[in-house]
């Protein structure tokens, strides 16, 4: 069987699990300040896991594409440690804070430069802007069949078969490759990468290339930045909690039942 070439788009973001107390909003500079280490967007990790699982079943080559103004290869080398074959970093000052459309544009041009591919995988959304657009726009730009919210991906006879999340359960769909699939967390968490494996990847030679806007043909007329008019702290979600107390749990239950009756 011929080698399947899979491209996974992965983005580096501040750890979205960071507690509320470590996130602050710099309204002046319209920036979110997160005091947390950089990680790979969890949904992109799911996409990578899906790709690695495919590679375990079929002969496949996985290329990870990551774009940003500055991309830390210490973070992204994790993808190689996990089983990707090649990492391409798209770094350029011009790639800072782009809107989803422009991000997709840059990725599309990079993918065109890569030229040969069968499957493009992205996460369903990124944990920083929660937009959920890049994958699908990318599919349109490359004129690929687009499948969103995949929870299971298989490849057979030049087609990709996907179980995608559906309001009533899931839908089984199929498309000819090349195709684009956005991946949801149901496919499973990225396998654990031990520190020794990671360090080996950090110290050893790795197949990493770095492209800036001159290295490939960024054909988009003009890249647009996401224009933030205003950045606010979330309106105080806090409410005054009335604690229902009582000498015994029985008494508490009684009072709580009364609350329900009141709200009826």
């Amino acid at each position: 069987m011929k080698k399947i070439r899979i491209i996974v788009c992965a983005k580096q973001i501040p750890d979205p699990e960071a507690p509320l107390s470590d996130v602050s909003v710099d309204a002046e500079n319209k920036e979110i300040v997160v005091d947390a280490p950089q990680v790979i967007n969890p949904f992109d990790e799911n996409a990578l896991e899906a790709a690695i699982q495919l590679k375990e079943d079929t002969d496949a080559k996985i290329t990870v594409l990551s774009m940003g103004k500055k991309v830390s290869d210490t973070v992204l080398r994790k993808t190689l440690a996990a089983g990707a074959d090649e990492l391409i970093l798209l770094e350029d000052n011009a790639f800072e804070k782009l809107d989803s459309h422009s991000v997709a544009c840059v990725l599309a041009d990079a993918i065109r430069k890569i030229d040969k591919y069968d499957l493009v995988l992205t996460g369903r959304q990124a944990g920083d802007w929660d937009s959920g657009q890049v994958g699908l726009i990318l599919g349109e730009m490359l004129s690929l069949p687009c499948i969103s919210l995949a929870r299971d991906i298989r490849i057979a006879d030049g087609s990709v078969a996907v179980k995608k999340t559906h309001p009533e359960g899931y839908e089984r769909v199929r498309a000819r490759m090349p195709a684009l699939v956005t991946v949801s967390n149901e496919v499973g968490e990225l396998r654990y990468i031990s520190r020794t494996r990671m360090l080996k990847m950090l110290r050893g030679a790795a197949s990493i290339s770095s492209w800036n806007s001159e290295d490939f043909d960024v054909a988009c007329e003009s890249l647009m930045k996401a224009e933030v008019v205003e950045l606010l702290s979330p309106s105080d979600m806090g409410r005054d909690c009335r604690f229902i107390e009582g000498a015994t749990a029985d008494e508490q239950a009684e009072k709580l039942a009364a609350v329900f009756m009141e709200l009826r």
Binding site: A82, E189, R191, Y192, I193, S194, T196, R197
Partner: peptide, 14 residues
């Protein structure tokens, strides 16, 4: 199991 990574249960992974 840590080295191959796949067999690490999710909670431990996190």
């Amino acid at each position: 199991a840590m080295e191959d990574g796949v067999r690490v249960p999710k909670l431990l992974n996190q």
